[in-house]
């Protein structure tokens, strides 16, 4: 038995469109997840004890259930409550919500890492709450939240593979379909693995650049 990658690579345009869908959902979903997670963490930090406890519940539910179950519930269960989503929208929402729960915890840890005194000093010179977040808390936590955020981005990329199961035309779906048509399953899986890995390395590389820039700023 010999590997024949030619039959896979001959379908270049189809593979490429799958990669593009994956990247769009990943980057868009990751950004939405980070923003949503940051908002949740910020509400929990400043919203008082009631809000803090209340927001803990959805985070626990999301973190406590498998991503596959969540997207099945969203995509196949949604119509029961009148929520009809096309696969790509469902996938995007799924990734955003799933990621937000984790990002919320990353930013919560970030908020806790900044000494109370630094916030008090900002209060004493007249900074408003938003200014304290923007000019003191965020920059001070940046270096700390960066590595877990890159980690999270990598995990989210690989979770997008599951979106093939709700028929999102991302790269796992397109490449494995090609593999079935051409009777080249293994070759298809190898190509898939390599592309995911390449994307992960890109994320790592960007993360390292950001880390270097940030550490220079707070030398």
């Amino acid at each position: 038995m010999s590997f024949d990658f030619a039959v896979i690579l001959a379908q270049g345009p189809k593979i490429l469109s799958g990669i593009v869908v994956t990247i769009l959902i990943w980057v868009g979903g990751n950004v939405a997840a980070a923003v949503l997670g940051f908002l949740i963490a910020t509400l929990r930090r400043f919203g008082g004890r009631g809000v803090d406890v209340l927001l803990q519940v959805p985070i626990e539910v999301i973190r406590g259930t498998p991503f596959l179950v969540q997207i099945f519930l969203l995509y196949f269960g949604g119509p029961y409550i009148g929520l009809r989503l096309d696969p790509i929208t469902a996938g995007f929402i799924g990734i955003s919500v799933y990621g937000a729960a984790y990002y919320a915890e990353i930013f919560r840890a970030g908020y806790r890492s900044v000494p109370v005194g630094h916030v008090e000093a900002a209060e004493c010179v007249g900074f408003s709450r938003n200014q304290i977040i923007r000019f003191v808390l965020l920059p001070e936590m940046a270096l700390l939240v960066l590595p877990p955020s890159i980690n999270m981005a990598i995990i989210l990329l690989k979770e997008t593979a599951l979106l093939s199961l709700i028929t999102v035309p991302e790269m796992t779906m397109t490449v494995s379909a090609i593999g079935s048509q051409q009777y080249a399953f293994v070759e298809a899986l190898v190509v898939l693995a390599l592309v995911y890995w390449a994307l992960v390395e890109v994320a790592n590389w960007l993360g390292r650049i950001a880390e270097r820039k940030l550490s220079k700023l707070s030398a």
Partner: peptide, 29 residues
């Protein structure tokens, strides 16, 4: 705004230079 406060632990913002620490509120506030 009539009161200036100095802390035991200094509480300078580590991501700003000395000049940045002193000028931040002048600019933002």
């Amino acid at each position: 705004s009539k009161i200036g406060m100095v802390f035991q632990q200094f509480n300078l913002w580590p991501h700003m230079t000395a000049l940045g620490n002193v000028s931040a509120a002048l600019r933002r506030v």
